[in-house]
Design a protein around this nucleic acid. Structure first.
Lengths: 224, 224
DNA sequence: ACACCTCGTGAGGGGATCGTCAGGGATCGG
DNA sequence: CCGATCCCTGACGATCCCCTCACGAGGTGT
């Protein structure tokens, strides 16, 4: 079953999309603001996101960035604005397609099919291995020497962001923004805490980390 | 270099696309009918196809099918028809995106970027190499003979400024302003210190610098 | 030859950052 | 109502980094 996350603050459109998508056999989950969308996506990763730009709480581009930090799920943006710069901004922020309201339902469905087709054909290596650890990003599972390890949602989210950027230095600000969202950029104590949790669960010798390395004053680096 | 195949029978549009794409650094090849498009794609596979539906010889859907038979290259369809069924047909035939004429050039370019991003063919990793040293600005990583070298934040900041201006003489005032910010323009002792640290970590013979050269009385020059 | 300036090098104190532990509040399920 | 789980906050040593100071080397003009 293909899971679709629909984000829109207008109940009318939300209802229309839910009905039409459900009728085609999609599993639909919904959110009516940006924070809810990020939360819903985190706890139950969808295969496709339909995102309205005119949300009441968070700017659309930030929602896209928040998703792109840890997932490559296809994102289709809905917007009432026909302004060209909005389209360019959304697409460059990481969206995959852009449809202006009012839209034809059959066209929207065709675009969703095209996105799913492309996402399915690109088989992106969802398995990341280092040491005795295997991380399956698609299945949300991590094992150490074959034993499954339980991670809390926040731990997993942080691991996903790091694992999708192997070898790259991630600044504290970047990590805080992508895991906790806007407004938590100064909660560095938190980041230290969860980094310690990840290390204690995944590192062979947590006191001397080999894979989740600290770059003092700059950030953290995941190095398989 | 990213190769784009543009297929359109209207010389005006063909020219506009060629100029705009070439200006952005794409390698552009063109065709003015379906048969030519299939031939051109076969003998020199492009990374991206922009396809007009109103071709004189072959129906657009057949061109898409002809390409899809052997390649998964992203296809963006151009069309003058706003009819919804055309969009659905084209997308279901295997196209990845659909834009109606008249179109905004910046929107089209943004859609092309989005498609390339998803296809995974954009990997612009600016690498700077000199001697045995490789500097990866995107990942914030430096290696010497394959061994990773740890740099402190200030060291990295200074290196980044120099590496972004290869061969150019940077005055001390300029460097101090870029790295330490306003108010530190007179801390030349500091600059000497960190330049020495960089040389000791990156130069083959730190006492006789080959890449980080001193221009007495003027400043420093990074020369790969 | 001498004074003067700029640059390179070394050592050490002050301060920021990091890892760790303990504890309270919120949520969920039984 | 109670226990379990998870998230966040605060405090504490330990570590690492940045800056200052002092001294010697090399070049330049008088």
């Amino acid at each position: 079953m293909i899971r679709v996350l629909v984000v829109d603050d207008e109940p009318r459109i939300l209802r229309a999309l839910r009905i039409n998508l459900a009728a085609r056999g999609y599993d639909v989950i919904t959110a009516s603001d940006g924070a809810g969308a990020l939360r819903a996506a985190a706890e139950d990763p969808p295969d496709l996101v339909v995102l309205d730009l005119g949300l009441p709480d968070i700017d659309g581009a930030e929602v896209i960035a928040g998703l792109r930090g840890w997932t490559s799920v296809p994102i289709l943006v809905l917007s009432g604005r026909t302004d060209s710069t909005d389209k360019v901004d959304a697409l460059d922020a990481g969206a995959d397609d852009y449809v202006t309201k009012p839209f034809g339902m059959d066209e929207l469905l065709a675009r969703l099919r095209a996105m799913l087709r492309r996402a399915g054909s690109v088989d992106d290596e969802p398995l990341i291995a280092f040491g005795d650890v295997v991380v399956d990003l698609a299945a949300t599972r991590v094992t150490v020497r074959g034993e499954e390890i339980r991670l809390t949602p926040t731990e997993w989210h942080l691991l996903a962001v790091l694992a999708r950027n192997p070898g790259k230095l991630m600044s504290q600000r970047q990590l805080l923004l992508e895991v906790w969202g806007p407004g938590y950029e100064t909660a560095q104590g938190n980041l230290r805490l969860y980094m310690a949790q990840l290390r204690s669960k995944l590192e062979p010798d947590p006191s001397r980390p080999a894979y989740f390395r600290t770059e003092p004053g700059m950030g953290y680096r995941f190095d398989p």
